Amino acid sequence: MKIAFYGSSLLSSYWNGAATYYRGMIRALSELGYEITFYESDAFERQDHRDLDAPDWCKVVVYQANADALSDVAAAARDADIVIKASGCGYADDDLFELLIKHRSSRSLLLFWDVDAPATLAELAASPEHPLHRQLAQTDLVLTYGGGDPVVRGYRSFGVMDCVPIYNALDPRDHHPVASQLEFTADLSFLGNRLPDREARVERFFLDVARQLPQRRFLLGGSGWEGKPMPSNVSAIGHIRTADHNAFNCSPLAVLNISRESMASTGFSPATRVFEAAGAAACLITDDWAGLDLFLEEGEEVLKARDGNDVAELLAGLTPDHAREIGARARRRVLAEHTYQVRAAEFDAVIRDRFDRRTAEAAE
């Protein structure tokens, strides 16, 4: 089946946290026989910061951020069996969705794939006139990056009956142990862009910990932290190319996951870095959120912290041997249960069920 997939970017992870999710899912779906074209706009300087060459498992179309180009790429939806509009494409999202609804064929499935469901649901609740309300009514299925039952209930409250979470995962070909690198050596490292609903949590779970443990070294990766006041034992090194994620995860004593406020409040929303770090056999310390035990076992495969004091205590008592044991157990778990091949099979089952239901309804 042919998929026309409209998202933020497959080729660049610059200010684009969904990049590795898209890459893992689409590559695994291509291996199941799906023929996929990914459409991304030339916006936010992402094309100037590409960290993936055009792959052989997906055709990528980069279009200019203007109305004519948007209309042209949306028209391609008429030839697809499955049309996917992701959230946060980056240029004229509402207009794009309207055009896709217009151009899709009657035989196709139209999906909305939400990679930031808690934020989307909050926006829908705050704005009864938001175009997405009307667009969802013409959508066959909503998929989400995570969120579990709370997100499913949220979408159903807006009249969406088919909502299925497809969680983050890893591709073991991309995320695996490598030799440590001196430039990424630290006691605790965190990778995440500076965002409004994350910054306060980074203060509590990371920067305050650095202040408590001045003898330890901390490494902060991600865009937007320039000019942020930090303790002297914190090194902010900017954007980390996806090719360097393994070394970033393998070099420190421990890696920290800090969820955005909306994701932490909703729960059931593990970030890509959770699985990428585990795939690299890193010792992961994560903030506390509902549903963690569905993915990794606390104390055995991951360490959990309620606040910065917990992070400091865990780090102070962590030995290299214990860190390696936790990382090894986490890697075994994610390779068994949380690969993109597993997620692609879930997608495939949902899609085939939806087509079967449509066929049965047409025969009645």
Rank of each mutant, 00 (worst) to 15 (best):
C283P: 01
D287S: 07
L335R: 13
E298K: 12
R352V: 04
F205S: 01
R107H: 14
A117M: 06
V115K: 07
V311Y: 01
D48L: 15
N233T: 09
F97L: 10
R153T: 15
T20C: 06
T339R: 06
E98I: 06
N249A: 15
T120W: 03
S232C: 12
T339M: 08
A28P: 05
Y340T: 04
R352S: 08
G148T: 08
S41D: 08
N246M: 12
L143F: 10
V202A: 11
S189Q: 05
D94G: 13
F190S: 04
A117V: 04
G159V: 09
A277G: 03
L207G: 05
W225N: 05
R217E: 05
R329P: 00
D321A: 10
V73S: 00
C89N: 14
R329H: 07
K102T: 14
G308I: 03
D321S: 10
G327Y: 05
E123T: 12
S105E: 08
A77P: 00
A119G: 09
T359N: 11
L182K: 15
S232R: 15
R329D: 03
V202Q: 05
L213V: 03
L213T: 02
L318F: 00
P55Y: 03
A179N: 13
P165Y: 09
T20H: 03
S71L: 11
P231K: 11
S106Q: 13
L284A: 02
F355W: 06
E129T: 15
K304I: 07
G148M: 08
H176S: 09
I3G: 01
R358C: 01
R260T: 12
E203C: 11
W289H: 13
I82Q: 01
T266C: 14
S71Q: 13
D81T: 00
A28K: 03
R156M: 11
V334D: 01
P320A: 01
W113G: 02
G279D: 03
G154M: 07
N249F: 15
D53C: 10
W15Q: 12
G221L: 12
K228Y: 15
L32V: 08
H245Q: 11
G308Q: 03
L99K: 06
S30F: 02
D293N: 13
E226Y: 08
A80L: 04
E98R: 13
I101F: 02
S8R: 13
T20N: 06
V60T: 07
P118L: 09
S106H: 09
I36K: 00
N193T: 13
G238T: 09
H239N: 10
H338F: 06
Y14V: 09
V311A: 00
G317K: 00
